[in-house]
Design a protein around this nucleic acid. Structure first.
Length: 591
DNA sequence: GCCGTTTTCGGCCCGACTGTTTTCAGTCG
């Protein structure tokens, strides 16, 4: 899928170049949208091109279609080649400096001949920025610290770490006198796998001055640097380099502000357009009748002095717009607004729907707890089933089991299962999918097991066609119930196998093989977009923690969040079956 | 540049904060 990301980058750069050149901003917005669209596309853009379906993709118009077509057929784009030579390419890095945008970059270039970050550093050192219109002492300081912070901010933070920081700040915020209600918003509330910053929102008791809350917030011990601090907003950088934004609103605006700050951007833009169509206007203060709103007195950082149609709760705002309430996880403008209007939103799966974990390890291979300990811990979580799936022999580094050890282990699992009441233990194995798609054990061993997860662990840089055939072979095996972490990707570390997902999904759906959403961070594999496409293709999914200790069962919530972002309902997830149903489901494939 | 059941032209979401300014441009979310 690197073609998608190559093109996504190309359009992002085109947009940035247009901004620097000062062209019509709506044009660059269009290209930015296409860039995001391509990054999240659940299929290879070349597939759409081959089928002549580029025209069906909303947001991609005639000009962009030409660019994409040329890039696919020739490997380059003449529009892009022309654009990139029209500005010094180093400016694309300059605009990534926080606080420095396209206008400033253009000014630096045209007035001082600065074409790269190195030039900029040198110019600052030599005092060459003096006398530039709009660039004062403070702005220069801002640029300097922006350059220093740039590398830290370059990588988005993983959800696990961000949640930790966000929750600790939230708890602290809730204890500040005058704070009536506080919530996490932003991409963290939408449970995106990585976040660029953390957004907090709170409403303030009527008599309290929000500036006092903001002043308390910037003094929290986690705060290393204050970016900005106003009457309704404060922005800080924590010790780990994570940006945290706080927004304060009166209670009447809490829902509208929570909505606005939760995003996503594309979701908000759609909502505001919808409001417009109805003669309303929507902002973080509330939903207003546009005629009333235009007459209102408005001061920066204060609610308008007219009553909103809605604003206290998100529910209220959605309903007033003619929509059902939309869960934060699916607010991505991927069809949820249309579904909400038609009252056809999915009933998203919840943690309470999960009856068991179907991929876990014990001390028999590389886990830290015994069969008994894992079973008791699963039972304590309210699970009624657990699959024990230790590694197969190729995973020598993980103390993988030989066939003989495995068969003894199976016996042991059954023995423990008979002893512990209230939970069904499935004796299984996480079998390696070898590089050519053969499995690490022959069928005569596999047939002795209750449950088989087959996973790729090595050779994760194969070409797409080779990798796809490899997984298709595993799916084809009658004993394989689940394909574990299908791509092998690691967030921020490893891309994973470039599979032809359409083929994989088709085969998995037809054969009755579930695909895993591995809930362990940094796997979260399948990701939200691919899991969504899998459901559309009729696949069953399995959400598993791959726990190597009893504590790791807790990461199920992360897997649930991926499934929810993928629009998954109970009926799409095999972990929501009872143990009896699950065994029958597996038996069907064995035939 | 993209889009369209009022439209093939004319609109495109909306506001806070900062810095450098006396009324606003730039950046960000």
């Amino acid at each position: 899928m690197s073609l998608n990301s190559d093109l996504s980058n190309l359009f992002a750069n085109l947009a940035a170049i247009m901004d620097i050149r000062g062209e019509n901003p709506f044009k660059s917005v269009s290209f930015s949208k296409i860039s995001r669209l391509l990054a999240d596309l659940p299929f290879d853009i070349k597939t759409a091109f081959d089928k002549g379906e580029l025209e069906d993709i909303e947001g991609i118009g005639e000009h962009s279609r030409k660019i994409i077509t040329e890039y696919i057929t020739t490997g380059h784009s003449s529009d892009y080649d022309e654009a990139i030579t029209s500005i010094p390419p180093g400016l694309l890095e300059v605009i990534k400096i926080p606080g420095t945008g396209p206008k400033t970059a253009a000014l630096l270039w045209k007035q001082r001949g600065i074409t790269s970050i190195e030039d900029l550093v040198k110019a600052i050192d030599e005092g060459k920025l003096e006398g530039l219109k709009g660039i004062g002492e403070k702005k220069i300081e801002q640029i300097k610290s922006g350059i220093a912070m740039r590398s830290q901010a370059a990588q988005r933070m993983g959800i696990v770490h961000a949640l930790e920081i966000g929750q600790s700040l939230l708890e602290r915020l809730r204890k500040v006198p005058g704070v009536k209600q506080a919530e996490i918003a932003g991409s963290l509330r939408r449970w995106k796998e990585t976040v660029g910053d953390v957004d907090l929102i709170c409403c303030v008791e009527p008599k309290k001055d929000p500036a006092e809350i903001s002043a308390a917030f910037v003094k929290f011990p986690e705060v290393e640097k204050i970016q900005g601090q106003g009457k309704t907003k404060a922005s800080v950088i924590t010790a780990g380099g994570l940006q945290v934004d706080l927004r304060m609103v009166p209670i009447e605006s809490f829902g509208a502000a929570l909505m606005y700050f939760t995003g996503s951007k594309d979701h908000n833009v759609r909502l505001r357009g919808l409001a417009q169509d109805k003669g309303y206007t929507l902002n973080e203060w509330g939903l207003y009748d546009v005629k009333v709103y235009d007459r209102a007195k408005k001061k920066t950082a204060e609610a308008p002095d007219v009553a909103p149609l809605a604003g206290k709760s998100e529910n209220e705002v959605y309903h007033k717009l003619g929509l059902a309430y939309i869960e934060p996880e699916i607010r991505e403008n991927r069809g949820e607004i249309e579904a909400a209007a038609a009252k056809k939103l999915p009933h998203l799966v919840t943690l309470a729907d999960i009856h068991g974990d179907l991929h876990s390890h014990t001390t028999a291979s590389d886990g830290h707890n015994t069969i008994e300990e894992m079973a008791e811990a699963a039972k304590a979580l309210g699970y009624t089933m657990l699959a024990i799936t230790d590694h197969s022999k190729s995973q020598a580094i993980a103390n993988g089991l030989t066939a003989a050890r495995l068969l003894k282990h199976v016996e042991q699992i059954h023995k423990v299962g008979a002893k512990i009441k209230g939970i069904t233990l499935l004796a299984g194995c996480e079998v390696d999918i070898l590089i050519d798609g053969r499995l690490d054990f022959e069928d005569d061993v596999l047939k002795e097991l209750d449950w088989i997860v087959a996973s790729p662990h090595v050779s994760l840089r194969q070409a797409s066609d080779v990798a796809t055939i490899r997984l298709l072979r595993a799916i084809d095996n009658r004993y394989v119930n689940v394909i574990g972490h299908p791509t092998g990707r690691l967030i921020n570390k490893r891309e994973g196998l470039p599979l032809d997902f359409a083929k994989i999904f088709k085969a998995a759906a037809a054969s009755g093989t579930a695909l895993e959403i591995n809930a362990g961070y940094p796997r979260l594999d399948l990701n939200d977009v691919n899991a969504h496409a899998a459901i559309d293709a009729g696949c069953m999914l399995s959400i598993n923690t791959d726990a190597h200790s009893t504590g790791e069962f807790d990461s199920m919530i992360l897997g649930i969040s991926v499934a929810r972002r993928a629009w998954a309902e109970k009926k799409n997830i095999i972990n929501c079956m009872t143990a009896k149903q699950l065994v029958e489901w597996a038996a069907k494939k064995r035939g």
